[in-house]
Design a binder for these strands. Structure first.
Lengths: 312, 312
DNA sequence: TGTTTCTATAAATTTTATTGATAGTTTTTA
DNA sequence: TAAAAACTATCAATAAAATTTATAGAAACA
């Protein structure tokens, strides 16, 4: 039994297809067929049920795959140990970022980061929270930046910053004249919502639930939708809440529609998240430190108080 | 990187000697030299410091060895999964037994066991508790039977039985005339002790500590020493305590010197112990069930009450 | 200083992994 | 339902690798 064989098994299990799996492994299809057969012979058990189309795992196969993932992952950690020893921080690193964080955080972060860690090849992908979770679990993503807490046992979280929400209230709206707004002022029916599962924290948690109950009636917006949200709001479809960093990009006219919350303002918790196996922690810590440094400057104004996160 | 290479590294790390390690791996010494060099080249790091004699691990080497143990162990589990699936209970199984359990338990156990599980090749070794712990941790022992609790985080325990102690009080002794004895009757100075760290449990725990404090003054007896203990006691060197199962082998005259404790009698906890990685659990469970069955018959008499074990 | 013990190296050999070509199935499509 | 496409297994050839025997060289030993 070799690590390579286990790796091949994982590839076939994932793609349910020898040919595609072979491509991903950069070998030919007979290689996979033969190596997997060899492993099956050695263990004297069928890992795949080849009678089903597409190919399926047998019951033992499923258990073997779980264990194989362990072994393959643990084998990567050997290189990790060596890197750590050498103080080498580099290599390819795949990171996912949720759409509502991507456009505000990335421009600030990227330049500083690649300057400080030129040996790391970042591969950044914009993904929904759901996609992120499954890809971290599948091992296709080294880390991600998302709104937390997720409450997923396989995924660890390190809080990067708390980003307050700011009310965006257009002309005609009943709250437009008021100064600072309060959570109690909000009404679900005239609110435009973001899709990305941003949950308010602490005392505001009930509000969040109320939102969820009404989710079907509300707008569901996808990637790059914050601009659309503002436009729709301008059109009289209701007020909305913007993550603070997005308000920095508004034009002067739009900024006049901003209403800050009385403190403590509702905020979203933005974290860097990664699989519990803690691979490539040096790089994760590097990203964390760079972002924390940047954010200390960006989110530091008086009328918002940072509330500690909910512990689930 | 292959599992074989990691296995070779473990062998050299253990024996601190390429030649001996090679023998244990059933390959020639150049094979180890070359494969380990290859791994070192691939990782671009020295695992062993060959300038030291005997050979030593480097700092990274130590970390790599820890991780390599993980990987190699996890790889064994694949076979475990397959065995479990097939309901196959067999293969080689190395078990250690402490000297004071060996002669009483083994004769009762062995016949039943090999009849019920003919495919398991048991390799039984008489070892001290200390030896057992280190060998389980090194992976050279699949399980062991010892007096517990050990309080070792890497080792799991499953209680097999509680074996009461019986006082052995020769003619001349001050307690000889009394009927059932009590823990408070015992005095350290006229007691002959067993080496093997049998700790009394519960309320008797202090007594145990008192024993340990005086350990230097007392007799220290090794393997097969229970007979010696009885003989020494007969010679007037003091009373002693015998594990119940040993009393069954005494001759009639010796049996007259036995004094049972008033209940609850002090007892030792005898468990099957194994590494936390839980390899070969099917076999461990098989052994556990056979022994439990046997013991239910053997230790079932009235004047002893089993006390639940101390949780450390 | 000679002897022993141990590891590294070299060349030869055996074993294993991989490939390209292709045959045999099953599924898809026209 | 026949033809095409997609997919896996098998075969022989080849490339790559692990292992071995033989040996050289270094360090420890006596």
């Amino acid at each position: 039994m070799t690590i390579t064989q286990l790796y091949y098994v994982l590839a076939v299990a994932e793609h349910q297809n020898f040919t595609k799996a072979a491509e991903k492994c950069f070998v030919t299809q007979p290689t996979l067929s033969m190596q997997i057969q060899k492993l099956e012979d050695e263990l004297d058990v069928q890992i795949f049920d080849r009678s089903k189309k597409p190919i399926e795992l047998t019951d033992v196969g499923r258990k073997i795959v779980t264990q194989a993932k362990n072994i393959v992952n643990e084998s990567y950690r050997i290189q990790d140990i060596v890197d750590q020893q050498k103080g080498f921080i580099g290599g390819e690193f795949k990171i996912g970022i949720i759409p509502t964080v991507m456009p505000t955080l990335l421009p600030m972060f990227l330049k500083t980061f690649i300057k400080k860690y030129p040996k790391i090849k970042l591969k950044i992908e914009e993904l929904t929270t759901e996609e992120i979770i499954s890809r971290i679990n599948e091992g296709h993503l080294d880390a991600a930046i998302a709104s937390t807490p997720l409450g997923n046992d396989n995924i660890k979280e390190r809080v990067l910053y708390f980003e307050p929400f700011v009310g965006y209230i257009p002309n005609h709206h009943r709250l437009h004249k008021s100064g600072k707004i309060q959570i109690d002022d909000l009404e679900i029916d005239d609110m435009l919502l973001l899709e990305d599962g941003h949950c308010f924290r602490d005392g505001v948690i009930n509000l969040c639930k109320a939102f969820k109950d009404h989710a079907d009636d509300s707008f569901q917006l996808e990637s790059g939708s914050i601009e659309t949200l503002v436009k729709l709001s301008d059109e009289g479809l209701g007020m909305t809440l913007l993550p603070y960093l997005h308000t920095l990009n508004l034009n002067e006219k739009e900024k006049q529609n901003l209403h800050y919350f009385v403190e403590p303002a509702p905020a979203r918790e933005v974290s860097i998240i990664y699989h519990k196996s803690e691979l490539k922690m040096q790089i994760i810590e590097a990203i964390q430190s760079v972002i924390s440094g940047i954010i200390r400057g960006a989110i530091a104004f008086e009328n918002v108080q940072i509330i500690s996160p909910v512990s689930k």
